[in-house]
Design a binder for these strands. Sequence first.
DNA 1: CGGGGCTTTGAGAATCTTCAATTTAAGTGG
DNA 2: CCACTTAAATTGAAGATTCTCAAAGCCCCG
Lengths: 247, 247
Amino acid sequence: MSVSRIVSNGDHHASTSIHPGLPQRLASFAVIRQCHRGEEICSQGRPAECWYRLMSGIARRCAVRADGRRQIIDLLLPGDFFGFTPTDEYDFTVEAAVEGTKVASFPRQRLELLADSDPQLAREIRQAAFETLSRLQTQLLTLGRITAPEKVGSFLLDLASRSAHASDGRVALPISRYDIADYLALSVETVSRSLTDLKNRGVIRLLSTRTVMIVDRSALDNWERHPNACHVLDIDRGARPRIARAG
Amino acid sequence: MSVSRIVSNGDHHASTSIHPGLPQRLASFAVIRQCHRGEEICSQGRPAECWYRLMSGIARRCAVRADGRRQIIDLLLPGDFFGFTPTDEYDFTVEAAVEGTKVASFPRQRLELLADSDPQLAREIRQAAFETLSRLQTQLLTLGRITAPEKVGSFLLDLASRSAHASDGRVALPISRYDIADYLALSVETVSRSLTDLKNRGVIRLLSTRTVMIVDRSALDNWERHPNACHVLDIDRGARPRIARAG
DNA sequence: CGGGGCTTTGAGAATCTTCAATTTAAGTGG
DNA sequence: CCACTTAAATTGAAGATTCTCAAAGCCCCG
């Protein structure tokens, strides 16, 4: 169903960016597969026979609720690993979000066996898992935001930091408003309104439907540097400060 | 600042439950530390010198926003690992949520070195990381819920599955309503109202303030078994089904 | 028995969702 | 290359939910 080939050193793109080449040991086992838009890369409930890394394009890891609503658990950008499970089957379905998405797949069982005798490989796998953890944590922070514009702003910042161009505040939105909505647990309309809201407040500029320019970075990023306030007695006892919405 | 001692085989509790003993190899390196309520176990920004596993009690991994709101990224129950980071410093602060919380700590650098020559240990660490991933994903699903009662219900189910007693639907709430609120990104009042709402609808019973009985499990769990609907053309194009709230 | 936090409940304000319709963008075929 | 069809994105208005502010009851601990 797709072109497959062996690659010696995975990444075709510039290795200077945030999206570095494959770790050395891993690279030699990669089998690249190209996917159509909407094509499933791996399916929930199926035996987890491979680990993956997105090489180009975009993929989404999603679940569907009984009420029919879809939820995007994880947005996969080039360089991201996925397919890690504690059990022997995939816990989510992953599908390509854009045409021609390229995925590197690694036979799990073989890799684990090799890792047993190749410490460097084992470390690379561990590192990949830790980076996946970090990605999910970032998303948890985003979903924990209160207002919709904050969620969208947080999403934009995350996207900017994970994308290639770091310098100018230009960020390409790789997915539709619908996908963003399902990723941020908002309705499409609210996503759209939040974007125009941020635009009107001068925080961003919409260069095109799928391109935003971050003008006021600080307005989007409102995280405390050191959360030691957690330690304060008041907060520990539950009487945390109550703050008005960032209307 | 706390009692520390070496243990040969970590877990004091029944090994029959969901909370099994420490993996064999890991166990031999555990140093147990007992913490006071509110005491920090590890701090954001500090060098990540240890990996941890909660042995008893409860801990929370949290962040504080610039506006003062606290967010609980991760609720740690006995058996849970934490402290995994892709960088060399902790990305969040972890603190004991109840008095006498016991934590096993493992010197990271030493463990990684040992893992290089002990494949079994390497596998155990990997497994721990994957389980952490799974835990975060579950929380992402919960936060992705639309209504507050759904979030609370999802939280209860998760808690039930992670707690010891599996049979009777009794679930002990190990943290305050405030903590639950910060964990689910809701206000305290909404958490409280959601609980009484679920009670009034006969889905749960409040045996005590900190003990709920799950009566109608299916009313809380509304996940599609196989999210293959993602693959349907309509959904792929964004025109996902729009469903009324579960009022 | 008193104090303080924890929990619950009430009421109004703000936000988000839903339903509906319009506008913009994109893809297809002549 | 333009007209046409369809999807994507935006905007409006009403209804629903949640947050905020306020206050009362509860429970544990000293």
